[in-house]
Design a protein around this nucleic acid. Structure first.
Lengths: 156, 156
DNA sequence: TCTTGAACCTGTAGTGACTACAGCCCGTAT
DNA sequence: ATACGGGCTGTAGTCACTACAGGTTCAAGA
């Protein structure tokens, strides 16, 4: 698995294949300046180095943790500084952790209500559908809109 | 506060004010056909009735439960049928419940990792930042991408 | 009645993080 | 030599809004 042989450059979608990242996504990251533009072959094809792969993997792992691309941009900037400013990086993480917890709380509230209606609906033979009645009648508890930056689940 | 007098039509943003829904959002729902177009005054202003308010509240409550607009469209369709097809409605809810649970699981995984790195970073005086090292080194456990339809938390 | 100014109107563009496609070009294997 | 699978660029679509520009209407106060 680990590259013991020297890999000079990855071509023909090898970067995408090695990392599991969609090739269009890689180009998108490049376009928005998250990844550096790689050198090109004479024909114009991108020739990535292991440096590119390393950086892409960083982005992918950060995405898996739900960081937004802007947060990742900031983390990459911090990662490149000589003396790593751990304080700033961990602030980014702590803020994001709070976002994640808020989302979990919101989703759990939804889950509770949904679980109830699904149970009440049962086999679907109710004359009045509990789900529809709930939506028409009950003022479901509203959480204050947190207005957080994105940073979504990887499965979105 | 509560409308004990007959309200014939709501104007001057009264619908938005009464429901707490942004007026631009109401018009967006109208445009995509989720809400019916209300009659207009001679000058072209929308004149909503309590029927519109009821339907809008339905949409808002469903959004609070994380249903997508397409799911809500379906639920509204079911709500209008003579004999309420509870079975179909509860299937929509059950599917959505599964989506919600998947998202909770994803977010909890993120929360666990983030909690750890924040603790490891501590007061930010580490020479090597644990967060950045984690992103460069560890292959964070990847969950299979569930490829679910949207339906996001209300705070997004 | 007239004026003011807030709220309405339409239509378009922007958000985030991709994904999909059209139309062309390159590179390798046969 | 040629086929064809992949790369290339650029644009448009997704979801659920939100923000704005540029114009019109309405209700209240003078």
């Amino acid at each position: 698995m680990s590259g013991h042989a020297a890999v000079k450059s990855l071509q023909r979608g090898e970067l995408a294949e090695r990392t599991g990242c969609n090739i269009e996504t890689v180009r998108y990251y490049e376009k928005i300046g998250l990844l550096p533009e790689p050198p090109r072959t004479s024909g114009g094809h991108r020739a990535y180095s292991s440096t590119h792969e390393r950086r892409l993997r960083f982005v992918m792992r950060a995405r898996e943790l739900g960081f937004s691309l802007e947060e990742i941009r900031e983390l990459l900037r911090l990662a490149e500084e000589r003396d790593r400013p751990c304080a700033e990086a961990s602030t980014v993480a702590a803020t994001h952790l709070q976002d994640v917890r808020t989302k979990i709380a919101d989703l759990k509230r939804m889950e509770g209500v949904l679980k109830n209606v699904v149970v009440q609906c049962g086999d679907g033979t109710q004359p009045e559908c509990p789900l529809i009645e709930t939506l028409f009648r009950e003022p479901t508890a509203r959480s204050a809109k947190p207005r957080t930056k994105s940073a979504r689940s990887p499965g979105d």
